[in-house]
Design a protein around this nucleic acid. Structure first.
Lengths: 200, 200
DNA sequence: TCAACGATGTGACAGATGTCATGGTACTTT
DNA sequence: AAAGTACCATGACATCTGTCACATCGTTGA
């Protein structure tokens, strides 16, 4: 019997998956949660064999859950199920020691199969991503990432300086660095590129 | 027997919903499609009672499907199921004559219920949105919307002028209009606001 | 200790952007 | 016919942005 915990913030999908997986004779669903923090409480109390989780959730992200599991040395293996085919996400997930990374574009029938394979110790990566995993590494520094995020929301250099405690000129220097690293021609394009690659 | 067509581009969700709905004794799923165009072919050939559809899909959007159904006078009633709680989307959906608008945050059990209510002639709107429906109307002209979309991707005024066949100064005037209508302080913030409200 | 390095900051300049006044055309409404 | 309402355009100006050279300061490694 493979014991599962589900973490997914889209209720419709979570409910549908829970019903569907519950139909499989060899699965037992211990809990389904819509945020990372309550899922973590469940996992800690009674570690399941497999955690099936989204990445972007309120509270803790799926990747942070995987890191916590690794840190505490729990037996639980993590299977990420996400919308985003972004190399940066996959890279961070691998570093966090996840055992599987599927896309929500995958056919539903593949999920049960992937869960069984992960449970038996295999590693499952969405084929679309298998190669991209070894794509370019994230070139951004933490500061550049932080400022790019602020710029993305429409703040100007002065406002960014205010909220980040830097000088106006320094902000422009960092954004300039980000722009040139990403081959963009302005901060907007830079933010778009970084987001597409999963670096934001 | 309620005949259904499903249109949803996330295969995992589509598959899970199809399996789940197929379990209901009074539902019959005629087709499940991942793009608007092939769903439209199915609907035209043999109009179902209900179309359950996402909004953002390749080919045709769910709203465009609803418009096509209305235009051709088919008996099919449309139930939108989307991630986006944006007043603008809801407004456009209502204008297209949809019978229901649910969020993917809704519990899975609500979907079958909503389908039955729509089939019996009721109108079902996600409660979170019932009020927002009467929110501010979209203040943007088509041109402003178009240029805002281009600006959002990081093109500068010159590039936008090139791809849209306008003069550089005209582009800035339109963006200025959009910025002031939306109470933003630059084009980036304007694009963000418009997107959040569902006007982009 | 000293050099190297990274994070932060300044000043200057060209070019892009936001703002405003102004004017033209075409289409609709009254 | 007159007024109103998009739409398209130009010119001018202040401000913001992107770029670059250079300076400061603290930490780290040799």
């Amino acid at each position: 019997m493979i014991k599962l915990v589900l973490a997914e913030d889209q209720s419709l999908l979570r409910g549908a998956l829970a019903s569907l997986l519950a139909l499989e004779a060899d699965f037992e669903i211990l809990a389904d949660r819509l945020d990372g923090r309550s899922a973590w409480a469940d996992i800690r109390r009674d570690p399941p064999d497999i955690l099936v989780t989204d990445i972007e959730m309120p509270g803790l992200t799926g990747i942070e859950l995987a890191e916590a599991i690794k840190r505490d040395g729990l037996k639980t293996r993590t299977l990420i199920v996400t919308t985003y085919a972004r190399p940066g996400y996959l890279r961070r997930a691998m570093e966090a020691g996840v055992s599987g990374y599927l896309l929500k574009d995958a056919p539903a029938t593949e999920l049960a199969d992937a869960i069984r394979r992960v449970a038996s110790g295999e590693r499952v990566i969405a084929p679309e991503l298998a190669e991209a995993a070894w794509g370019e590494p994230d070139p951004l520094s933490e500061t550049e990432r932080r400022l790019l995020r602020l710029a993305e929301s429409g703040l100007d250099s002065h406002a960014i300086a205010g909220t980040s405690g830097l000088a106006r000129g320094t902000v422009r220097n960092y954004l300039h660095e980000a722009i040139s690293k990403l081959g963009a021609s302005n901060r907007i394009e830079a933010a778009r590129i970084a987001r597409e690659k999963g670096w934001l």
